[in-house]
Design a protein around this nucleic acid. Structure first.
Lengths: 344, 344
DNA sequence: TTGTATGCGTTATCAA
DNA sequence: TTGATAACGCATACAA
């Protein structure tokens, strides 16, 4: 069974293909009469235009793609909604494209740009340890959102929106120190991570160093390199190991809320109390941290505002109202039940 | 700056376009020599073939699309991984396409079929209250996965994989009854829902009716129609209302784990204990139910196996090894800390 | 207001 | 083993 095309419709209607095309695309230069007639036939015939053909022909497509690495990250879900709203409000169409963890997001972007004639791209998540050369190949506006870029890259080549991971991390550790904690464990990503995990560990170290608190390397715990910090179980396992190790500590800082949940469970299963025996802090500000029992102290990233700013910068770039920009947001430390003063 | 095409590459290499095409697509009838030469030039020039043109020309594309409605549903995340694996194992390419809650998934499917020359489709999530007519328009194999189809539709028109929502729901309520509970509240989706929520409420009713336990309509609580059962907060609010209403009950059955979490928090915030004051059961089998404190009794849907079976049926259909099939999986009741015998 | 013809960038057929 | 050329389905410049 051959697929139905615009030609078939034209034939059925006794008109030319261009007239059908005009009807479909709401062109003004067509009589209302023939338009409705054509649309009628189209509906009857269940005709659906072929987008590939359309994209091939068009050189101007008002569409934005969001390339997301780690679509299972609950942290991104609210951002996606904002992207969709903001983009559609501006009469652009929105494409959400998932990129696999072992795919190169720039390659994917390059393909998509050609295929869909994109006007702009948002890169959401991932490490982005790319060469400048690669970045330069992207010849349309793009913004890196919540991505820590590894290495030295010319800031004029890209725009970005994120929180200052190092600084926010320092904030967390300072908070714990202010409560009297000095033996603070940190649950981090794989050892070879060069992205947010690395930055947050740096913040952890900085905070301790500034207070002359000795750093116990045994309290810096990593999951495996092929594992994900968004998996609750990984925090759970890490904490079980830490507890079993006999290493002394009074507080735990998990670089993700998900692992903080897992860690909490491990602590509770060991018959210990939160926060009386161990204080625990997460990072991200997921909803679940409020609903967990006990509720979990965390750094909330202002995800909606960040998403909004991302699209704003992107459209400013598209409309040539701005050069590449880098916007750094503040996180908000939300104190909850999982942390308390250390009683010595 | 005009985009670079296969013609430019051909010119640069001093060969014809068809030779370049052959090089790109690993055709056998080309000398290794020219192949490497061409690939070299392609790399240097950063040439990326245009997929729209490719899809337009091709009539045989080994690709499967998964159309997912409710991508923020944590329940689907593990399934997606399985789909990707299974599909790629069979040397097909995998497209994950998100469909918005107010979009018609069949329209989207029809567009995608034409655009990408799909070989098969998986519909994941959503209500699917479609006419038979619409279903018939889809002229390639497809499977509905974890979708409750509303109304009477000829089973020969589609394949499906799901759990028996009504039956599993009955299982939950029976379990609570066996523990001595008779005043059981249920937290459900919006009143006008015609999908899983409706079925699970039916199961709830059936279980009670079979035991001659009177049904208190005030214990059947609905969220708003425009709200989502995957949002923790919705369970929280619903439970707050229920507690404030003064209606008596000893157990709560939430039709989603997410709402069960929210409900648990509401109970705990009210100074009540789980399960001593209220038993609570969820549905889905999300990881978080294990990690929550207390851990939550739930019905686990065997998501991985269901995803695997979905792809199996789909490929059997593609390879004409089978007619349309309907596979119903059993859920597994996992008893945890959130439920206990009622002490009167 | 409408129809004809051309080209978008690829792949496949055919001839060389 | 190669190259020229005809589609694929649509939008549009141009002619009518």
């Amino acid at each position: 069974m051959k697929a139905i095309t615009i030609k078939d419709i034209a034939k059925k209607c006794g008109v030319g293909v261009s007239t059908v095309s005009r009807a479909i695309n709401n062109h003004p230069d067509i009589s209302e009469e023939t338009r409705t007639m054509i649309m009628e036939v189209i509906k009857e015939s269940n005709f659906v235009p072929n987008k590939s053909a359309r994209n091939l022909k068009l050189l101007d497509t008002k569409t934005i793609a969001v390339l997301i690495k780690g679509i299972d990250n609950p942290f991104f879900q609210n951002m996606i909604k904002v992207f969709e709203e903001e983009i559609q409000d501006r009469r652009y169409s929105f494409i959400l494209h998932r990129v696999d963890s072992n795919q190169d997001e720039i390659e994917v972007a390059l393909e998509l740009i050609k295929e869909k004639r994109l006007k702009g791209i948002v890169f959401l998540g991932g490490n982005f340890s790319h060469q400048e050369e690669k970045l330069k190949e992207i010849n349309i506006p793009f913004v890196l959102s919540t991505i820590a870029i590894a290495g030295d890259v010319d800031k004029n080549l890209y725009s970005s929106v994120c929180v200052d991971d190092k600084n926010e991390s320092e904030k967390v550790v300072n908070f714990l120190c202010n409560q009297g904690h000095t033996k603070i464990a940190i649950l981090a990503a794989g050892k070879s991570d060069q992205s947010i995990s690395k930055l947050r560990i740096q913040g952890y170290r900085n905070a301790l160093i500034k207070r002359n608190i000795p750093i116990n390397e045994n309290l810096i715990r990593h999951i495996n390199d092929n594992e994900n910090i968004q998996i609750i179980e990984n925090g759970y396992k890490l904490m079980k190991e830490l507890l079993a190790s006999g290493e002394e500590f009074t507080a735990v800082y998990s670089i993700s809320d998900s692992m903080a949940i897992g860690a909490s469970k491990a602590i509770l299963e060991n018959g210990k109390r939160i926060p009386q025996d161990y204080s625990i802090v997460g990072f991200d500000g997921l909803d679940i941290t409020y609903y967990y029992n006990p509720s979990i102290t965390t750094i909330r990233q202002p995800v909606e505002e960040m998403a909004r700013e991302t699209t704003k910068i992107l459209f400013d770039l598209i409309n040539k109202k701005t050069q590449n920009q880098h916007r750094v947001f503040q996180g908000e430390l939300i104190e909850r039940e999982s942390t308390s003063e250390l009683n010595r």
